[in-house]
């Protein structure tokens, strides 16, 4: 074993309040399952002095349906538990099941995947490599090697759960030492590879809340291998239809093409009130794909991911338009 963690102190609070107090220290870092953080620490991308483990906090555990019919998923729920849960929408379970590998899903948490650090093949590299390349913007340097003339970081939002949560209109409950707030998952993220979410350092993601949903939803993840890999592209769509097959509501989200999941608002607006005919899907695909500008900072390159964006958007829309595909809400 040659890659070891840098030294740190581990503290394991048992209450949220205690944890919130501990993470206000700027040299501290939260750790859930550690499957994202530990590789980064082994590569010396980050070297926190203190790790605040969320593993023993009961408030982060469990999945339940609340009085309002919302599905409430604790941030400390593992991805394996999520994938196996009969309480969560099927699209959420299947998205969870497509993350990383079985072993990682047994350890990684919902909170960890939602807060997954943005990824880039200039930053998620060993220390020697980053020294050889010249440390990038996200790595404490002054240049983004993906777009050297740009003034911000283009690292990729690679969470699979966030696009799905946004499509389902989910929100997050955040707790800090001085109180708590609920924020739409959509508003939680921002398109900047370094400051990719709006959570303050003192806040802990406690729960993912998914409103009751009775439409059709899907998440299509594109990756080279059927396991282990992060998405090259992820398309989440959730829609409701009236009796005449006209769309009454839709959220369409493209993941892994920017530093945040991208809502395809123009396409959503276009689709409302329309039946998903081939022409309609084609136009919606155009509207949703045009703004997408993947960069050359993961496997297969930017051109291919740009090409794939409409392909997967179309497929996602076709899937939710089709009656014979899984109605993701049929089996509670």
């Amino acid at each position: 074993m040659t890659m070891r963690l840098p030294p740190f102190d581990l503290v394991t609070p048992t209450t949220l309040q205690e944890a919130a107090g501990l993470i206000s220290d700027p040299t501290a870092s939260i750790v859930g399952g550690g499957t994202d953080l530990f590789p980064k620490m082994k590569r010396r991308q980050t070297t926190p002095v203190t790790l605040v483990s969320l593993a023993e906090i009961d408030a982060l555990k469990g999945i339940r349906i609340d009085d309002e019919g919302r599905c409430v998923i604790g941030a400390g729920v593992t991805l394996a538990e999520l994938a196996d849960s009969p309480l969560v929408p099927a699209v959420v379970a299947s998205a969870a099941d497509a993350i990383a590998s079985p072993q990682i899903r047994n350890t990684a948490t919902v909170g960890g995947n939602l807060c997954l650090d943005t990824r880039c093949n200039y930053i998620d590299m060993p220390e020697l490599w980053r020294e050889a390349s010249g440390h990038c913007l996200k790595d404490g340097g002054d240049t983004c090697w993906v777009a050297p003339r740009s003034d911000h970081c283009w690292a990729i939002s690679s969470t699979d759960l966030a696009p799905v949560a946004i499509a389902l209109g989910g929100s997050l409950r955040l707790v800090a030492a001085d109180g708590e707030r609920i924020i739409d998952v959509d508003d939680f993220f921002q398109n900047d590879g370094i400051d990719y979410h709006t959570k303050s350092p003192g806040e802990i993601v406690v729960e993912l809340l998914l409103p009751a949903f009775t439409g059709r939803a899907t998440y299509l993840k594109h990756r080279r291998r059927g396991s282990i890999d992060f998405p090259l592209l992820g398309v989440a769509a959730a829609a409701t239809f009236d009796d005449a097959a006209r769309c009454t509501g839709i959220r369409l989200v493209v993941g892994a093409v920017a530093s945040a999941p991208l809502r395809a608002i123009a396409a959503e607006e276009f689709l409302i009130g329309r039946e998903f005919t081939d022409d309609v899907i084609e136009e919606a695909t155009r509207l949703a794909s045009n703004p997408v500008r993947p960069q050359d900072n993961t496997d297969t390159g930017s051109r291919y991911r740009k090409w794939m964006t409409p392909v997967f958007i179309t497929r996602a829309l076709q899937e939710i338009a089709s009656d014979d595909t899984t109605n993701q809400e049929e089996e509670p």
Binding site: M1, L10, G34, K42, R43, S53, A100, S101, Q103
Partner: peptide, 26 residues
């Protein structure tokens, strides 16, 4: 050593996990 190969798989309470990404203190 960073969770990409599975060679270090062990069972923790019967479930497979990657020993390279689990702290012994946990």
């Amino acid at each position: 050593d960073v969770g990409e190969c599975g060679a270090c798989t062990v069972l923790l309470d019967g479930r497979p996990v990657l020993a390279c990404l689990v702290l012994v203190s946990q």
